[in-house]
Design a protein around this nucleic acid. Structure first.
Ligand SMILES: [Mn+2]
Ligand SMILES: [Mn+2]
Ligand SMILES: [Zn+2]
Ligand SMILES: [Zn+2]
Lengths: 149, 149
DNA sequence: CCCTTTTTGAAATTGAATTTCAATTTCATT
DNA sequence: AATGAAATTGAAATTCAATTTCAAAAAGGG
């Protein structure tokens, strides 16, 4: 996102455009997703050690409100953030071995969820769906299946 | 679960059978699911005010290890427990209006999840799937659609 | 530049989850 | 029934992320 578009977005909300917010957004958007606050703050602080943890916290909340960030809570319970610039909704495959997170999108899954909800008289607004298991490298590491000889 | 079967189960684990554990199990199994610790402890304390929060905490952890309880963390982040005596795996529909939780099971969903995981080279061990929306009474309350006249 | 409002950041607070530890209880063994 | 080692209990302490507080600093409209 260009700095100017962010300034506009910010001021449309009646908020002020600050150096801190711009820096945090920049760093956040240019890093890989699913990071917790401590990680994001560490990265921000490497660039500008004056920026406090609280400001990073508040800015990530703000970005979430603006739709630029998405808050995630996987099984470990920690709050993580990911940029939404990829735009579309997606769910997650999470490796219990190495922690790798793979994103996926499946229309069949989405429509099945809606069908199930409708079957129970629910009108769904969002869902949460995470698949926990082992990625193929980790499966290979764990189960040496059978060796030659 | 009969007290004797619990005693056996407990001692098979090399643990001791105590009055507290029996009481907590009894109360836990005879109440509706998805309760947080404070709620479970409150109910236990009503029966026996001598039993401490910590013991309830540890006992629920124990029951989870024994497979008699399942730990759940829905979107509010609080840890909740439900008895597993219904046995089978299920997922949840959660009403954002009234908090009602509806359980469902859908083989098609389960197999689709496995298919998706396999497609990404993952071997899945468990998953988490919650659908958030409004139940029909809450939908009716929120959107008075159209009135006669 | 001025003034009001917002923002910042260090420190304090909150609250659930977990650990500590001395006192108590269990239970296998006499 | 008494003994004693090992497990359990429960109040209090600790942990730790999340959130709030508040005085000082910065933004930005006029
Ligand atoms: Mn993602
Ligand atoms: Mn359930
Ligand atoms: Zn892996
Ligand atoms: Zn409802």
């Amino acid at each position: 996102m260009e700095p100017d578009r962010f300034k506009t977005l910010i001021s449309e909300e009646g908020l002020k455009s600050t150096r801190q917010r711009a820096e945090i957004l920049d760093i956040f958007l240019n890093s890989t997703g699913h990071r917790n606050l401590a990680e994001i703050h560490a990265r921000v602080a490497r660039m500008n050690p004056k920026i406090g943890y609280t400001t990073v916290y508040r800015t990530l909340k703000l970005l979430t409100r603006l739709g630029l960030a998405a808050e995630r809570k996987f099984a470990d319970g920690e709050t993580r953030y990911e940029p939404t610039h990829k735009g579309t909704h997606h769910d997650h495959l999470i490796c219990l071995g190495c922690g790798k997170i793979v994103e996926f999108e499946d229309d069949g899954l989405e429509s099945l969820q809606n069908r199930i909800a409708r079957g129970h008289g629910f009108r769904i607004f969002h869902h949460r769906m995470e698949l926990y298991g082992y990625c193929s490298p980790c499966v290979r590491k764990k189960t040496p299946l059978r060796r030659k000889g």
